[in-house]
Each structure stands twice: as structure tokens, then as C-alpha cells.
Computed example of a mutant assay.
Amino acid sequence: MTSPTEQTIHDQYGYWERAPLPQAAATPDAALAVIGCGTSYNLALSIAAASNAAGIRAVAVPGNEWLRRPQNYVPDWRGATVVALSRSGESTETVAAARRSRDEGLPVVAVTCEAQSSLARLGTSVLYAQTDPAEGIVMTTSASLMLLMGLRHVGATLDVGAAVAAARRLAAAVDGEARALTQDVRHVVYLGAGAAYGVAVEGGLKLQEMSQVFTQAYHPLEYRHGPISLVDTGTLVVMLYGTETPEEEAALVRDVQARGARVLGLGGPGDISLTLGETGATRLLATLPALQLLGERMANARALDTSAPRHLTKIVRIAESA
């Protein structure tokens, strides 16, 4: 029986196709602080990296960090434009950071799936797309929609039609290998470079939320510098290959395989290797549903219900301190 979470993974593509083009676009003279919490921060990592690649300066910052110590991330922070991501538009830290930014006179671009939310009301401009009403605690459609809107905002080249076709193929391929990927796994490592790093972190978060399996995420070559000490036969490594550095990433894959890990290679060699023909932002968006589905299948293997992840709520609200 298909879970509600899995159904939203499969149903998200129509939402991509209907997502409106942004009315606001970042300009080359902007300095962006892309903020969010949890999944939204992971997406911010990819959006900021894609923004820099497109020639617009950007840094990703967790919501509470931007609220409490923005000068640690942007020295002249009062000259920044804040791009704030929140599915609900009600995440306490992000809303508080957006409010402080507006009070300081900074432009705020609200990226959200709730048009009447607190964040949307704070936005100088709003990037809004309706998410699947069936989506529960685990962010699936909303995550891909906010990634899509953020990438468009910073001018990343993105072919939604190609992303939909590639995402369907990749998710189906991962599903076909699900048993081999999830059997006897105790530890999952996600590796991605550049703008793919945020998507790798998000893949790890999804699998950990859904299945309660320990995950880590790193830039690929950082993995040799200590974390590789945890690799054993219970390790699955998910490599999001970069188009610029496939040879050095393939060499790392051989290293972890020699130490007992299984490898899912997305766009390059692995024990299971799946082709990715797309590049850039199109590739980022196309990868996300497959990583979401891998989390669902790991949860299935452990007989866990992904509609009710342990200790999690749909909106994180905390008491604000002065």
C-alpha cells in the first residue's frame, strides 16, 4: 500500500509544471543572504551556490544565525537582500529573522507555499507556489517547489520539462534497486559538490527523518579527512557526481568500496550506477525526488510509517526570547 508521503513524491511533478515564474529576480549587484531552517536551509545551500555560479553573490545562513549574528556571515549585512524560505511561512526562527531584516530596512524575498503566512506578509516580494495539500510532516513537493522558485530567482538555467522527465526516470530506477540499496544498511553517507551539496544534505535529512537511520553529508573530497573511518559493510554511500569532477569522485568511490561500502552513483560509477544526462539546476531538481523515495524505501525496510516521523511536527514553533 502506498503511503501518503510516497504518493506526494510521485505526484509532485504537476506542481513543478504549474509553478509561476518569479515576479522578482535577483540582480547582479545584489548580495543575497538565503535563509531557512531544516529542509529550507538545505535548499538555501544549493540556491546560494547556484546564485554565485550565476554571478550573484550569495551566502546560505540558518534562520536563527541570521537573526542573532548576521555580521558573522555578511560583514556589511545591512546592505544585503534576504531570501527567506519556509514551507509554512511560520517557522519561528525564519519569521523572526525576516522581521528583524525588514525592521533594519533590508529587502526580504519570501519563498513559501502559504500565501497568507507571516513570512509572506513580511516579504518585500513573495515567491509563492501552492504545495500538495496531502503533504504531511515530511517535506516532499514543497521542498522541490521552493528549490525551483529559488533557483529561478537567482537566474539559474532550469528546464522544468526536462527536469520532470529525468526525475521520473531516476526515481523509477532507484525504486527498482531499492532492495539492494536498503538491505542491512546502518549508516548512509551523501556526497555532493557545489550546488549539489545542499541537495545531498537534504537527501540525508529526508532518509534520517523517515527511517531513523544515521546519515551524514559532505563535500566529496572532504570525506577522506576523518569521516571515512566509519565506513564498513553496513554503509551506503550516495554519490551525486559533479559534471566538472567525475574522475576524482570516482576515485573516492573506489576508496569507500574497498572499505566495504555499497555505492549508489548518480551520474557516475557505483555498485549501482544511474545515468544523469541533465546539467546545472535542471540536474539538481531532477535528483531530489529520487532521494526522497530512497528515504521512503529505507523506512519501508524498517516497517516505519513516514506519515508520522518520530519527534517531528509539521511546523517548528518555539518561544522567542528577547
Rank of each mutant, 00 (worst) to 15 (best):
L21Q: 14
G176A: 08
R179M: 04
V126K: 10
V34A: 09
A25F: 13
A166H: 06
S40E: 14
V34R: 06
S125F: 01
C37P: 01
V237R: 03
T140D: 08
R254V: 00
A281E: 06
A60G: 08
P220A: 05
V160K: 01
Q71Y: 12
E6L: 13
Y241K: 07
A120C: 12
T92K: 11
G36I: 09
D159P: 04
G203A: 10
G270F: 02
A173V: 02
L285A: 01
Q23R: 15
W66F: 14
V82C: 09
R224S: 06
S142I: 01
Q116D: 15
A50S: 15
Y197R: 14
V154M: 03
L147N: 09
R186P: 00
A319S: 08
S125Y: 02
G176Y: 10
M210Y: 05
A178E: 09
E320L: 15
L304R: 15
L264A: 03
T313K: 12
V95F: 13
A53G: 11
R78Q: 15
Q7K: 13
Y218R: 05
V83S: 06
Q208H: 13
G89R: 05
L266P: 00
L85H: 11
A166W: 00
P246S: 04
A299M: 12
A281M: 08
E248Q: 11
S117V: 10
V154D: 03
I47T: 15
G242S: 15
V82E: 10
Y190E: 00
G176R: 08
R121K: 15
L148K: 00
M139N: 06
